[in-house]
């Protein structure tokens, strides 16, 4: 599925923010419609909209289940936290792009906002 030219995709975000792609590299052309920052899974289930990027410091495999069920575009793990292999394999299985950065969530959110993701 080819995205619109001016639509921010997960790939575009990864390049602009210098994120490391850990899993779901086949799904990077997914468009981003918004974003949220939270480490509470229920908050994400209640507030996440389809196509949102989720910035979190949670790293366990349940984050992938939440992202898949809420139809999120991608998970960005912030502040240098590293997801384990079980999280990575679940992300591949559920086709959820999983990315990481050493930058804190606040900075990542600010840069995503600057990219035009609102």
């Amino acid at each position: 599925m080819a995205p619109d030219r001016d639509e921010t995709t997960v790939r575009h975000m990864a390049e602009a923010l210098g994120l490391t792609v850990l899993a779901g590299s086949a799904c990077l052309d997914r468009p981003i419609h918004g974003a949220l920052v939270s480490d509470l899974l229920s908050y994400v289930m209640a507030s996440g909209r389809a196509g949102d990027v989720w910035i979190t410091i949670q790293t366990h495999a349940n984050t992938v289940a939440v992202a898949a069920l809420a139809s999120l575009a991608a998970i960005v793990v912030a502040a240098g936290f590293e997801p384990g292999d079980d999280t990575l394999s679940r992300a591949e299985e559920e086709e959820i792009p999983l990315l990481m950065s050493s930058q804190p969530a606040y900075v990542l959110a600010g840069r995503l906002f600057e990219l035009g993701v609102r």
Partner: peptide, 11 residues
């Protein structure tokens, strides 16, 4: 792990 926010049943 990010559970137990007391939002489950209200959600």
């Amino acid at each position: 792990l990010g559970f137990g926010a007391g939002m489950g049943l209200p959600n």
